[in-house]
Design a protein around this nucleic acid. Structure first.
Lengths: 179, 179
DNA sequence: GTCTATAGGAAGATAGAC
DNA sequence: GTCTATCTTCCTATAGAC
């Protein structure tokens, strides 16, 4: 149910998703949702946990690659692979961050940012191992480029923006001169 | 009232803004809003017109600068000047695009993208005049960087991301070798 | 044109049968 | 644990007085 919740919240948006939508996606009666989650906020938190888990799984896989540069290139390759999803619904974490920013009354406004922070930290660690100057700045630039290309791809409904920007990011990584 | 509408929709988000909120911001009774706008969708369209108008005004001002490179640097400088707004509420057009993507039932899902398209086209024209190869690609990269840094600045509540990324973008423009 | 009061409907949440 | 029926609240939109 957590997986279905995360998917529906991404596709329809947090505010436009009803409990009935989530119940339908999970194939249970509407009222039943409240047996597992007391409020809609708890459903959002479950989706955030799902995203955090996906991120942990992804970075654990990438960590198996020996070279930090190859890890970053594989990360970018994964983004491009999801280009059709990005063009249709945007980056799951990015769009969630935009929506949750408005829910400061629930105290959820910073929750998505914490997940993004983890990804930035992981990317910064790779740049550090490469011996790059200002690894944190490079990480913010890379994740920023990802968020920007996802948003533009979505707003302009053009998946090829992901392809072209992804290729550019990989070229820049190859050109990055370190140690 | 259109200006107040655009501001409130940006600060609170489209979905979490009620007609009563807009009425309060414009200092009129709630029911009165419907004398000017028949539906909430029309209020959103009014906000989009406001953003389009602001964009026209901005590019008209920038067009008075003689050098296309200086125009782009001034555009970036304007983004950095708005860093506190970006950190608190995100880019007005970008966050609107994310929210409207979910409103395909109203046919508003592509409306924000059309405004962003105008900005991309204007930026591409500046690169073209500079004699750069692939002006369209460079424009998408620049606007993507802006959207990405605004989203990260907002999600991580850090206006300095705007400062640092803005400085990087200006350095890259200075380094851009053309003609 | 401006305002108050309220209708109508949607969605979050709950009660209680099974 | 699972499900149906329903309560409650909130918000869009309208009716109608002034």
């Amino acid at each position: 149910m957590t997986t279905a919740t995360a998917r529906v919240l991404h596709e329809q948006g947090v505010e436009r998703t009803t409990i009935a939508d989530i119940a339908r996606a999970a194939d249970v009666p509407t009222g039943n949702v409240y047996y597992y989650f007391k409020t809609k906020d708890e459903l959002i938190e479950a989706a955030l946990s799902e995203h955090t888990g996906n991120l942990e799984t992804l970075t654990a896989q990438l960590d198996r690659l020996p070279d930090p540069r190859e890890r970053l290139k594989a990360l970018i390759g994964g983004w491009v692979d999801q280009k059709d999803m990005a063009a249709r619904h945007g980056c799951p974490m990015g769009t969630l961050a935009v929506e949750l920013d408005k829910r400061y009354e629930d105290g959820l406004d910073l929750a998505a940012g914490q997940v993004i922070r983890r990804l930035v930290d992981w990317v910064a660690e790779q740049y550090r191992r490469l011996g790059a100057a200002d690894p944190e700045g490079l990480a913010l630039t890379l994740i920023g480029a990802y968020q920007g290309m996802s948003l533009l791809s979505n707003a302009l409904r053009d998946p090829e923006i992901m392809t072209r920007e992804g290729a550019r990011l990989i070229r820049e990584l190859d050109a990055l001169d370190v140690v």
